[in-house]
């Protein structure tokens, strides 16, 4: 039985000082606190990979808005992840120019190589595969984005190469890539 319903976490105990500083900056440039909601979600996501329920509650409390309201925002935007994702999130463009230039083959190759479909994460938690609308690289289609990096002129082979490189890199040195 849950008699004490919510043990409220204080945002200042949950968020790191860096996160708080970044969120405070966003708040400072907006007219209302809630207006910083999307940016705050992005800040926390940048540090933690995704937005857990707990993160959502804490951010909402910090912005003095309801969790329901913030959840409505979080679920509207596709670049906010409300589920855990792998270290590298692959956003493969599936819009028209990439369609015309064969993104489907690239997709098949990635799916086969990683053994996951859209929306899934590899068992080693390294990769999550998502589709993305036009990435603005139509003249260099097909394209994908991993983390902050755009990869262009893809072929099935090239896509697998890129992913393999990341896999190796991760195995050998465990370097932090800019995500």
């Amino acid at each position: 039985m849950e008699i004490i319903k919510t043990i409220t976490v204080h945002p200042k105990d949950y968020l790191t000082s860096q996160e708080l500083a970044e969120i405070d900056h966003e708040i400072s440039i907006m007219e209302t606190r809630e207006a910083a909601g999307i940016e705050a979600l992005k800040v926390v996501q940048a540090h933690r990979g995704w937005i857990s329920d707990e993160s959502l509650h804490v951010i909402a409390t910090y912005l003095r808005m309801s969790s329901a309201e913030l959840e409505g925002v979080a679920t509207f935007y596709n670049l906010i992840y409300r589920q855990p994702v792998g270290k590298y999130v692959i956003h493969l463009c599936d819009s028209v120019s990439c369609h015309l230039t064969g993104y489907q083959q690239v997709l098949n190759a990635i799916v086969q190589h990683l053994n996951i479909g859209y929306g899934q994460t590899t068992e080693d938690n390294l990769f999550t595969l998502l589709s993305n609308v036009c990435l603005g690289g139509c003249d260099k289609a097909p394209v994908m984005m991993i983390g902050k990096q755009h990869y262009e002129h893809l072929t099935p082979e090239k896509a697998v190469e890129i992913i393999t490189a990341l896999q190796n890199q991760n195995q050998n040195e465990n370097v932090e890539v800019e995500l």
């Binding site: 329920d53 309801s66 969790s67 309201e69 679920t75 509207f76």
Partner: peptide
């Protein structure tokens, strides 16, 4: 404050956050 709208396109739903 405990009710909202979630999601987009034809997958919009309404209810509590939890």
């Amino acid at each position: 404050t405990d009710f909202g709208v979630y999601g987009t396109s034809n997958k919009v739903c309404f209810g509590r956050q939890e």
